[in-house]
Design a protein around this nucleic acid. Structure first.
Lengths: 194, 194
DNA sequence: GCGTAACCCTACGCACGAGTAGGTATGCTC
DNA sequence: GAGCATACCTACTCGTGCGTAGGGTTACGC
């Protein structure tokens, strides 16, 4: 039943999706939807949570914490793009939807924050292994940028049904890791003095 | 008047924003809003266009095409983050809003596509200058990732009112340019053979 | 066969908000 | 000052869609 909801929400968007359509798509009648899953908002949150936990599990399952940073990043990315490739509906639209709608944006922000934290932790770990350290805020921002780039490619992937998730992950590594690795080795860029 | 609309749309989201509230906020009555700017959709598109062109102009004005790639990127980023910092309302929410709502997503996608094209063109130019070449699709994807990372940091900036746009731009350069520069010099990352 | 209980439906109430009709004030022309 | 136009408002209509009330159907116990 959640599947039907995800499908309709993804096609129409939260507001444009009518409970009638969801019910019809699920093959039951509207009062049943209310009986099982409560109001429209609750239904949407349920979808969000399910897709979110699925995704986080896919990533967490792939990126074991005892691997070296590049390996973790690679596996995490591969799992992530694999997930998005397999759940284009779920991702593409729940995600795009949830960003805009006030009540859900917070929910989503929390999820993303966990992801950012994981990435930041990974970078920090790698840094310490090199005997180096940078400000926590910088770390957070870098992690944010990486997560953002990844999400952006996920969008691209969702819009290009023929694209290969694996290949997309590789491309992402090419941008992310080469950049991050430089930082880890202490190479930084400074603004010109103009 | 558009200012009021942007403010309300940004605070409430497209659907939750009522024309009454916009009118009240603008200090006029609803029929006036309809007289001047047409329906709600048209109003939103007008907001989107204005903010969009303003942003593109800010960027285009800063990143002259005859500069070297890193300089262009830096100036473009600085202009972009400066713009977002100064128009937090406009950016943060019009952008977040427009992604989700079906009728506007296309509009926004087109804008972003122009940006991606510019970035890709820049990378391509830099590559050719080095006597190198990579597949157009790869270029596009890399550009996409860079744009995505930048947007993500813009979101971060919009949510952190105390953060400094200039500094954010510098951080972005640290991730983006160091990564992109590697690619330009022919360094690539390859997946392990597992 | 009749009570009853679980299950699901059709059909409605109701609120909310986009868009409009028709009226009022202010200023301008002759 | 009468006629007219411009600028604006209040107060309405009407569609839409969430959430629910109340009724029908099947299965089982007695």
């Amino acid at each position: 039943m959640l599947d039907a909801a995800v499908k309709v929400f993804s096609r129409r968007g939260f507001h444009a999706a009518s409970m009638d359509e969801i019910a019809e798509d699920a093959g039951i009648s509207k009062p049943m939807v209310y009986a099982y899953l409560g109001t429209k908002e609750e239904l949407f949150v349920a979808c969000l949570h399910r897709e979110g936990t699925r995704m986080m599990q896919a990533i967490a399952g792939a990126a074991a914490p005892d691997l070296p940073a590049d390996e973790r990043l690679w596996r995490g990315l591969r799992a992530f793009f694999g997930f998005v490739g397999a759940h284009r509906d779920g991702w593409a639209v729940l995600y795009r939807q949830a960003r805009g709608e006030q009540p859900f944006a917070g929910e989503l922000a929390a999820m993303r924050a966990r992801l950012v934290e994981v990435v930041a932790g990974m970078l920090d770990h790698a840094l310490r292994a090199e005997g180096r350290e940078i400000a926590a805020i910088d770390l957070e921002v870098v992690a944010y940028a990486l997560v953002g780039a990844t999400e952006s490619l996920a969008d691209w992937l969702a819009d290009h049904p023929d694209a290969d998730p694996e290949k997309t992950a590789t491309r992402m590594m090419n941008v992310a890791w080469l950049g991050a690795a430089q930082l880890l080795h202490g190479v930084t860029w400074r603004p010109p003095a103009d």
